[in-house]
Design a protein around this nucleic acid. Structure first.
Lengths: 235, 235
DNA sequence: TATACGATGATCGTATACGATTTGGCTCCC
DNA sequence: GGGAGCCAAATCGTATACGATCATCGTATA
């Protein structure tokens, strides 16, 4: 007996499609979202689309101005930095809360992901341009690696904030790796070091410090690249 | 020349009304939100109400199940504690980031609010029942006090998270003060101590520690009262 | 008596229709 | 030639209508 299709609501369908498109980068920041066009594309009416857009707006993924319309949330560098700072904060908390529940198997899985990141990078550097690789794919692996460290967080709110932060930045992280490609290989080594610390039962404070350094290193690299450092206090 | 009325959209109207009702406690947690009834009450159609509910859902203020309907988000103690933990985290960060921008005038204003809290409590304790006071009004003052410490936070995301956390807990904080009324006067004294530390230029770490103690004290009191301590790690 | 089943009402989900607002460009006048 | 004002197309905002789904309650049967 085949189970009946869950028959997600059209509103849900629109939400998931838009979410996927935005997070994956298929819909670039700044892209205009004309409700009727989205509705036609998904073969639904505008009402469910409006609902979906409202939800995405509340998540910060789109902006929606009265009588103007919706656009995929922008890429203003300042905004990017603040978001990254916030994400770093909650991810740090999530990692700390996760720590007691992380198993040896989790660590092994993380190592495996890190290896895949290494291979991904090696495959990409076969090109004449050594910096030529797919930042979106690399970012996906990067997210997968990090999720091992925070996914066991028992606090659903903090976990949710972490996911929202990653969603918000996902399409932009890739460009950070594009700007500062050496961060890719550096990240892999730092991941390795983090896993070692955890496996050797290093004190939490030390692990946290290393994790924070790892996170801020990418941000720092980005700041150095753009030359835009509005003097953010570090958390 | 009188400016034309801003003519907020009906969706916005519905959102603001529901938001106000929920945060103030006029709509108690668990209350059912029948879309057509809300629409009638506000003299609009159901479409704007649906949008508003979706937004509130994304903020965690209501739950909205397919084909079931919307209800004001519940008061499950575990949920409450996790939310409080999360709020404590982001409020701490916001306070730390705000610190450099807090002026002497801000401190003075905070002291004034704290005095009003004292008076509020004194007025309430005139009753035969010394614990009889309006927890909602007291919570409003409490929020006003705390906002001095974090409102100058330059990171809009963290600030937004703090506000959402307070919104989420606003209707419930009152009941915490009802359960453990002695926390009210204790809070006022702790506020005093915090302001003293800031004014005397105490090191940030010390101020942060005191702030964290103050925040967790209310939570601890709640835990002691309910006897439900699922063993949360402290941040 | 307890349980399974079916009808009915309440509510949700979505499509469609239409008025309201904005945007962009065109014309006309200076 | 430049700018103010107007017109039309595009898009948004909302109401209404109707089919779909769920909860409730009554009834029949073991």
């Amino acid at each position: 007996m085949s189970v009946a299709p869950p028959s997600a609501s059209k509103s849900e369908l629109a939400y998931e499609w838009l979410h996927e498109q935005i997070v994956s980068g298929g819909l670039a920041p700044g892209a205009r979202l004309v409700l009727s066009q989205v509705a036609d594309k998904l073969d639904v009416s505008v009402v469910p689309v409006r609902e979906a857009v409202r939800r995405l707006e509340a998540e910060g993924l789109v902006t929606f101005e009265k009588n103007i319309g919706a656009t995929v949330a922008g890429i203003d560098p300042t905004e990017y930095l603040y978001t990254m700072q916030t994400l770093s904060l909650v991810e740090g908390a999530a990692t700390a809360l996760s720590a007691p529940a992380v198993t040896a198997a989790d660590i092994a899985a993380a190592r495996e992901v890190n290896e895949r990141m290494r291979e991904f990078l090696a495959a990409g550097s076969g090109h004449s341009d050594p910096l030529h690789f797919d930042p979106v794919g690399f970012t996906a692996l990067n997210r997968e690696f990090h999720s091992v460290l925070f996914e066991r967080c028992p606090n659903p709110h903090i976990l949710d904030l972490v996911h929202r932060g990653w969603n918000r930045l996902n399409a932009l992280r890739g460009s950070t790796f594009s700007y500062v490609p050496e961060r890719a290989s550096q990240s892999i080594e730092e991941h390795e070091g983090l896993l070692d610390l955890i496996e050797h039962g290093a004190p939490t404070s030390e692990i946290e410090l290393a994790a924070r350094r790892h996170r801020s290193a990418t941000l720092t690299a980005y700041l150095a690249h753009t030359g835009e450092n509005p003097g953010f206090p570090t958390l």
